[in-house]
Design a binder for these strands. Structure first.
Length: 625
RNA sequence: CGGGGUGUAGCGCAGCUUGGUUAGCGCGCUUGACUGGGGGUCAAGAGGUCGAGAGUUCAAAUCUCUCCACCCCGACCA
């Protein structure tokens, strides 16, 4: 049955609620799709739920085609499961915790690797049962620092999360095969949802794992920064984005005498630059990181506190602190740093910005640290970005509070004093976030260009991180046991809706000055029938057309309200239903109705079509929307 | 968590500086009339713990204190 507007709950608003900043948020509120209940908490009204369900249906179909099987796990899970993998710590305050009446602690799941692994551990005993891909569509909870942009970053949201289990990475049934199948399914899903998207290499973050890709809808309102090579053969999230070779020299001759400058109350780059009348790009920024070793059992909890500045461990030489030096106008990339640290010190270490007071006790003048620290702290490693490993007029910290130096020179002030240790202690390496114009890592002369994107999907190759931590094994043909290899694959369903409204690519605009322009596949209705006066023949014709359209598979909303035509037209545009059929006396007199696509230019006239063929014509039209 | 800001009718806002009738305006809502192809006109209405609590005062939306919620920027993150 077609829906009647007057019988539904579609509270449209003329004015934009003050809290909404981005177009999708504003329009979802104005069109009566969502309503805010609290920070990052939204009611989905009838229109919103319809779209959500449509996106879910597409996801389910494509998951099925990719061989994934649907399950439903509890949203509330015992905290012990997350403790087993250390993610109760890794997720930190983002994890919602609830105590039950017996005082038992539970988490509201932010993502379900542990829970699915537990399930598979219980029932999957043999390699014969693998590969296995399970998925669910479920409400996830994350206690975001700062929920914002409406449903783009909310504290409760619908996620499709799939998990695959394998005995091997390569070969038939291996992780790579399923990863590729999920990747392909994602491309089909987003294409069907009418989203212009690109896939980028990504950092895996607290989920962990070896490889990962994100699916991004380009949009100026996106929170992620993507870099693309202008040769079109490389794209990555800034968190992951590598750069091609950049030249570096620590041998450049000094351009002036090292001079200490009193810079009272200027710990920040910008303050110092202003104070010394120079630019951040002429400064060296030194960040102090603390390296800690972590045992497999107590991941994320045990921190080794060394008494000296450096010491020997089973891993070999072990630094307690690492200094990272980048140009003042650049940012340290913690993902790159993490990878670097792990390759140097082993997988059991983690790295964090040093706690200022602790570091001060250990002799670091936080806020005024410079590369010369490497000399006074024998155990400290120094990683230098190539752009910082140059000659020039460098301003940097003097390693004492309220003082900086100018004319710092690598060779004279660090390399030579260190002597033979220098090459081991001072390492030049790509350690910063990419910036516009950096060389592409493909090394083909391409240059990196930035843009913003909304992350709608993310796929990961997890390896055995979770199966190992959870103690899950399967038997192989030779009767040996392994921890299954895993992949995981997430889609933010709510974000599909917001991204559809935000989208702005040629021929794929998600909104204009009049309202939303839904892609037909996830529009709450495909057709809205607007009667100029809802009575008599017009009302009957509306019902008749609705019936024919529904027989053809389209969802129809009949605007049966006793409103003036102007109001109905404005609301129809605001809602963004792909096709509007207008029924008025003039056309009706000649047996016709008017048909207009929402994405047609506002000035374009509606097409007059005979009632008998109207449904057929509209159904045909919808295929292209 | 740091910085900034806002809480007055469903939505958007004024009033607060300088305390003083019954707290206003626009949109929306109700009723009636006229109207009827891009957010109509007129008339009559309904709707408020002024975020909460405490204090000062003869008197508090307005001044003071405490708390709460929300928004923006940042640090951190799907």
């Amino acid at each position: 049955m077609a829906s009647k507007w007057s019988k539904s709950l579609i509270p449209t608003a003329r004015q934009v609620p003050a809290e909404a900043e981005v177009p999708s948020h504003q329009l979802m509120l104005r069109a009566g799709i969502i309503r805010k209940l609290g920070a990052g908490l939204y009611d989905y009204l009838p229109l919103g739920l319809r779209s959500l369900h449509k996106a879910m249906a597409i996801v389910r179909e494509e998951m099925g085609k990719a061989g994934a099987i649907e399950v439903l796990l509890p949203a509330m899970v015992p905290i012990e499961l997350y403790q087993k993998t250390g993610r109760d710590q890794a997720y930190g305050d983002n994890l919602f915790r609830v105590k039950d009446r017996h005082g038992r602690e539970n988490a509201l799941g932010p993502t379900h690797e542990e829970i699915i692994t537990e399930l598979v551990g219980a029932y999957v005993e043999s390699y014969k049962q693998l590969p296995l891909t399970l998925y669910q569509i479920q409400t996830k909870f994350r206690d975001e620092f700062r929920p914002r942009f409406g449903v783009l970053r909310s504290r409760e949201f619908q996620m499709k999360d799939a998990y695959s289990f394998h005995t091997a990475v390569e070969g038939p049934g291996g992780l790579n095969e399923i990863y590729d199948a999920q990747y392909a399914a994602y491309e089909r899903i987003f294409k069907r949802c009418g989203l212009p998207f690109l896939t980028v290499e990504a950092e895996s973050g607290p989920i962990g794992g070896s490889a990962s890709h994100e699916f991004m809808v380009p949009s100026p309102t996106g929170e992620d920064t993507i870099f693309e090579s202008d040769k079109g053969n490389y794209a990555a999230n800034v968190e992951k984005c590598e750069t091609g070779p950049r030249s570096a020299t620590l041998d450049a001759p000094p351009v002036g005498e090292l001079a200490k400058v009193h810079t009272p109350g200027c710990p920040g780059i910008d303050d110092v630059a202003k104070f010394m009348k120079t630019k951040p790009k002429n400064m060296l920024k030194s960040l102090v990181f603390e390296v800690s070793q972590i045992t497999q059992e107590q991941m994320g909890q045990l921190r080794l506190k060394a008494s000296q500045t450096g010491r020997a461990t089973s891993e070999g030489f072990f630094a307690e602190y690492v200094i990272v030096i980048v140009r003042g106008d650049h940012d340290v990339n913690e993902g790159k740093l993490n990878t670097l640290i792990k390759s140097k010190f082993g997988n059991n270490v983690s790295i964090n910005l040093a706690e200022p007071n602790e570091a001060k006790e250990d002799g670091f003048a936080i806020g005024y640290v410079g590369p010369q620290t490497a000399i006074s702290h024998p155990g400290v490693f120094v990683f230098v970005d190539p752009d910082a490993a140059q000659g020039g007029f460098w301003v940097t910290g003097a390693n004492e509070p309220d003082h900086h130096v100018k004319y710092f020179n690598w060779k004279r002030d660090v390399i030579d004093p260190l002597g033979p240790d220098a090459s081991q202690k001072v390492v030049v390496v790509d350690i910063r976030n990419a910036v516009e114009g950096d060389p592409s890592p493909k090394g083909d002369g391409g240059l990196l260009r930035p843009r913003k994107g909304i992350e709608i999907g993310h796929v990961f190759k997890l390896g055995d991180k979770y199966s190992k931590a959870m103690g899950v094994t399967v038997l192989l043909p030779d009767n040996s046991r392994i921890n299954p290899i895993m992949g995981c694959y997430g889609i933010g369903i709510n974000r599909i809706l917001a991204a559809a409204i935000e989208r702005d690519s040629p021929g794929m605009r998600g909104h204009d000055e009049n309202g939303i322009i839904w892609p037909a596949a996830i529009a709450p209705y495909q057709v809205v029938i607007t009667t100029i006066r809802h009575e008599g023949t017009a009302a009957e014709t509306a019902d008749r057309l609705a019936k024919e359209l529904e027989a053809g598979g389209a969802d129809v909303l009949i605007d049966d309200r006793d409103e003036r035509p102007g109001v109905k037209f404005k609301d129809a545009d605001l809602l963004g239903i792909p096709v509007r059929i207008t029924i008025g006396d003039k056309a009706l007199a000649t047996g016709q109705v008017e048909v207009k696509a929402r994405n047609a230019p506002a000035a374009a006239k509606a097409e007059l079509i005979a009632i008998d063929v109207a449904a057929k014509t509209v159904l045909e039209m919808l295929k292209g929307l």
